[in-house]
Design a protein around this nucleic acid. Sequence first.
DNA 1: CGACGTGTTGATTCCTGTCAATACTCGTGG
DNA 2: CCACGAGTATTGACAGGAATCAACACGTCG
Lengths: 244, 244
Amino acid sequence: MLAKNTQVKCGDCPIRHRAVCARCETDELERLEEIKYYRNFEPGQTIVWSNDKMDFVGSVVKGVATLTQTMEDGRTQMVGLLLPSDFVGRPGRDGSAYDVTATTQVVMCCFRKKPFEKLMADTPHIAHRLLEMTLDELDAAREWMLVLGRKTAREKIASLLAIIARRDPRPDLPSGIEASFDLPLTREAMADYLGLTLETVSRQISALKRDRVIVLDGKRHILVPDIGRLLEEAGDDSDGGYLV
Amino acid sequence: MLAKNTQVKCGDCPIRHRAVCARCETDELERLEEIKYYRNFEPGQTIVWSNDKMDFVGSVVKGVATLTQTMEDGRTQMVGLLLPSDFVGRPGRDGSAYDVTATTQVVMCCFRKKPFEKLMADTPHIAHRLLEMTLDELDAAREWMLVLGRKTAREKIASLLAIIARRDPRPDLPSGIEASFDLPLTREAMADYLGLTLETVSRQISALKRDRVIVLDGKRHILVPDIGRLLEEAGDDSDGGYLV
DNA sequence: CGACGTGTTGATTCCTGTCAATACTCGTGG
DNA sequence: CCACGAGTATTGACAGGAATCAACACGTCG
């Protein structure tokens, strides 16, 4: 469970320019190297329990993880989707407010918390980058509030697909297909993200397939013939500020 | 519209110890004084338009403002409720992603953006406090995602009332009343916050009144005889981590 | 093969949205 | 002073979309 990976030099790290360390100078990277270690997680495995003390913070290097909240009666809501380069943990706080769970194989680059906090205090680059990333996450959370509060089931599904398509671009596209990606989530996880039931998710995916908005290749691989159409279905401003 | 108020010395400011300036030393406060100015807004007045260029950032000193997003067809979702000491604007970004609107009389303490960003770069106290506040806002946004995605209309209303009761405590309580506050929002604004229609909001408030969870004094003043009961109705963990 | 996890589809219920009528408060102006 | 209208709030009737309950299909792994 705690099996450490072969360490990757920060300079060679695939998320080097997007993660919390993006702005670091060489000497700062060296200090980060000293306090970092890798951890692997299997699909379904919990990375942090809500309200547990966290002794580390870190970045997702590979894979997908989720942040979820659960009510006493079992209703659960996903409140964040963590993709490579996303940051986990809150400097200055003891624990996580949410369950963090791996949905695929996940590689985390962890930093021991205390030294990381010290490093943050010493070097402005890390703190500054973290503020920037937190502001982005806040924007994403607020964007998601619109989805949860005001969109129909069909629009919710289309919004989720649009987000994943946006963050996971692929070059190898057959003609007549503008985007293509694997769903890293089960129907149930999608339901938890969207505030729906898994049956409704399944029905709406079928409906989008029937209406040719998407094409399925197996249960988990999605092809999008026309991204503009998908964004339209998502209820987003279709003047395409996002892609293309 | 731009009428400047009598400036208040930072040392005498009512939000001095909670706002973005909370950690500042005397000399930092002096630099803030130089770039700050007050602005008043009337109820209903827009403070910033979504996608507009913002040339200032600032703190709410008095009153209540809202952050909202609107879809092309008019559906709107409130994504933030700004109470005194809350921060408006995003250093490093050009504009606001949301409409910011005053719902009551609002006094804002504004800082010209460029000098404020410079000050942030120079002094770690402001940046650090801003990170802390942004992390809190992110938590609040995620908490709200659970409300929007998974709670029933009745639970949503109870959740909103609980939040306002928590942030606006009053000492002058008649016996048999554990909390008392004015609703700073119209039924429509509450609906936009909760992802409901104003009719449903009205009905659920009536239902909570009928069931003696709350007592109304006029349309806007709420009395809560039993806060535990309210939290229970909100679906929150009733072991009362919050109040009392 | 049978059990289990995952996903699809159908029948039905019910919560919330929609449409509509009415009440109340507060200015404004005749 | 009262009529009028605008904004806000309440309540009712009805419709519709998503939840619920349930059956079944598919793939994997023991």
